[in-house]
Protein backbone atom coordinates (compact mmCIF):
# COMPACT_ATOMS: atom_id res chain seq x y z
CA UNK A 1 0.00 0.00 0.00
CA UNK A 2 1.53 3.29 -1.06
CA UNK A 3 1.48 6.43 1.10
CA UNK A 4 -1.21 7.96 -1.11
CA UNK A 5 -3.41 4.92 -0.66
CA UNK A 6 -3.00 5.08 3.12
CA UNK A 7 -4.20 8.68 3.02
CA UNK A 8 -7.05 7.71 0.73
CA UNK A 9 -8.30 5.14 3.25
CA UNK A 10 -7.69 7.58 6.09
CA UNK A 11 -9.68 10.27 4.29
CA UNK A 12 -12.52 7.81 3.81
CA UNK A 13 -12.51 6.92 7.51
CA UNK A 14 -12.49 10.58 8.61
CA UNK A 15 -15.34 11.38 6.21
CA UNK A 16 -17.37 8.47 7.49
CA UNK A 17 -16.74 9.33 11.16
CA UNK A 18 -17.78 12.93 10.57
CA UNK A 19 -20.90 11.89 8.67
CA UNK A 20 -21.98 9.41 11.35
CA UNK A 21 -21.52 12.00 14.09
CA UNK A 22 -23.39 14.61 12.04
CA UNK A 23 -26.37 12.30 11.64
CA UNK A 24 -26.47 10.99 15.21
CA UNK A 25 -25.79 14.01 17.44
CA UNK A 26 -28.47 16.44 18.56
CA UNK A 27 -25.99 19.04 19.80
CA UNK A 28 -26.05 21.82 17.20
CA UNK A 29 -22.47 22.98 17.65
CA UNK A 30 -21.30 19.37 17.43
CA UNK A 31 -23.24 19.13 14.14
CA UNK A 32 -21.39 22.09 12.70
CA UNK A 33 -18.05 20.67 13.83
CA UNK A 34 -18.94 17.23 12.45
CA UNK A 35 -19.79 18.91 9.15
CA UNK A 36 -16.30 20.39 9.09
CA UNK A 37 -14.71 17.05 9.98
CA UNK A 38 -16.57 15.49 7.06
CA UNK A 39 -15.34 18.28 4.83
CA UNK A 40 -11.77 17.75 5.97
CA UNK A 41 -12.06 14.03 5.24
CA UNK A 42 -13.37 14.82 1.76
CA UNK A 43 -10.47 17.16 1.09
CA UNK A 44 -8.07 14.45 2.30
CA UNK A 45 -9.61 12.02 -0.20
CA UNK A 46 -9.20 14.59 -2.97
CA UNK A 47 -5.56 15.30 -2.14
CA UNK A 48 -4.81 11.58 -1.84
CA UNK A 49 -6.49 10.91 -5.20
CA UNK A 50 -4.30 13.62 -6.74
CA UNK A 51 -1.21 11.71 -5.63
CA UNK A 52 -2.28 8.15 -6.52
CA UNK A 53 -1.46 8.50 -10.21
CA UNK A 54 2.29 8.33 -9.48
CA UNK A 55 4.72 11.08 -10.44
CA UNK A 56 3.70 14.71 -9.94
CA UNK A 57 0.45 15.26 -8.01
CA UNK A 58 -2.39 16.57 -10.16
CA UNK A 59 -2.95 20.30 -9.50
CA UNK A 60 -6.54 20.23 -10.80
CA UNK A 61 -7.65 18.05 -7.89
CA UNK A 62 -5.84 20.45 -5.56
CA UNK A 63 -7.88 23.28 -7.06
CA UNK A 64 -11.03 21.27 -6.41
CA UNK A 65 -9.93 20.73 -2.81
CA UNK A 66 -9.27 24.45 -2.35
CA UNK A 67 -12.66 25.40 -3.72
CA UNK A 68 -14.21 22.76 -1.48
CA UNK A 69 -12.53 24.35 1.53
CA UNK A 70 -13.75 27.83 0.60
CA UNK A 71 -17.30 26.57 0.21
CA UNK A 72 -17.11 24.71 3.53
CA UNK A 73 -16.04 27.93 5.26
CA UNK A 74 -19.03 29.86 3.92
CA UNK A 75 -21.38 26.99 4.78
CA UNK A 76 -19.95 26.97 8.32
CA UNK A 77 -20.60 30.70 8.59
CA UNK A 78 -24.24 30.26 7.64
CA UNK A 79 -24.59 27.27 9.98
CA UNK A 80 -23.14 29.24 12.90
CA UNK A 81 -25.60 32.09 12.34
CA UNK A 82 -28.45 29.58 12.46
CA UNK A 83 -27.03 27.96 15.62
CA UNK A 84 -26.81 31.37 17.32
CA UNK A 85 -30.38 32.22 16.38
CA UNK A 86 -31.55 28.85 17.71
CA UNK A 87 -29.69 29.37 20.98
CA UNK A 88 -31.27 32.79 21.37
CA UNK A 89 -34.66 31.19 20.74
CA UNK A 90 -33.96 28.65 23.50
CA UNK A 91 -33.08 31.46 25.88
CA UNK A 92 -36.49 32.96 25.20
CA UNK A 93 -34.96 36.04 23.52
Amino acid sequence: MSTAEVYLVLGGVVTLLGAVRLLTTRDRLAQVIALNVTGTGTVLVLVALAATGGGEPDPVLHALALTGIVITVSVTGLALVLVRRLDREDDGG
Partner: peptide
Protein backbone atom coordinates in the same frame (compact mmCIF):
# COMPACT_ATOMS: atom_id res chain seq x y z
CA UNK B 1 -34.02 24.36 13.17
CA UNK B 2 -35.29 22.93 9.86
CA UNK B 3 -32.94 25.29 7.99
CA UNK B 4 -29.91 24.01 9.91
CA UNK B 5 -30.95 20.41 9.33
CA UNK B 6 -31.47 21.09 5.63
CA UNK B 7 -28.06 22.76 5.41
CA UNK B 8 -26.23 19.89 7.12
CA UNK B 9 -27.85 17.17 5.01
CA UNK B 10 -27.53 19.08 1.74
CA UNK B 11 -23.85 19.76 2.35
CA UNK B 12 -23.30 16.11 3.28
CA UNK B 13 -24.84 15.22 -0.08
CA UNK B 14 -22.53 17.70 -1.78
CA UNK B 15 -19.46 16.11 -0.21
CA UNK B 16 -20.52 12.72 -1.59
CA UNK B 17 -20.94 14.32 -5.02
CA UNK B 18 -17.55 16.06 -4.73
CA UNK B 19 -15.79 12.77 -3.96
CA UNK B 20 -17.56 11.21 -6.96
CA UNK B 21 -16.36 14.08 -9.17
CA UNK B 22 -12.80 13.64 -7.88
CA UNK B 23 -12.94 9.89 -8.52
CA UNK B 24 -14.11 10.42 -12.08
CA UNK B 25 -11.39 13.00 -12.68
CA UNK B 26 -8.65 10.88 -11.10
Amino acid sequence: GPALRYLCLAVLGSFAFLVAVALVYA
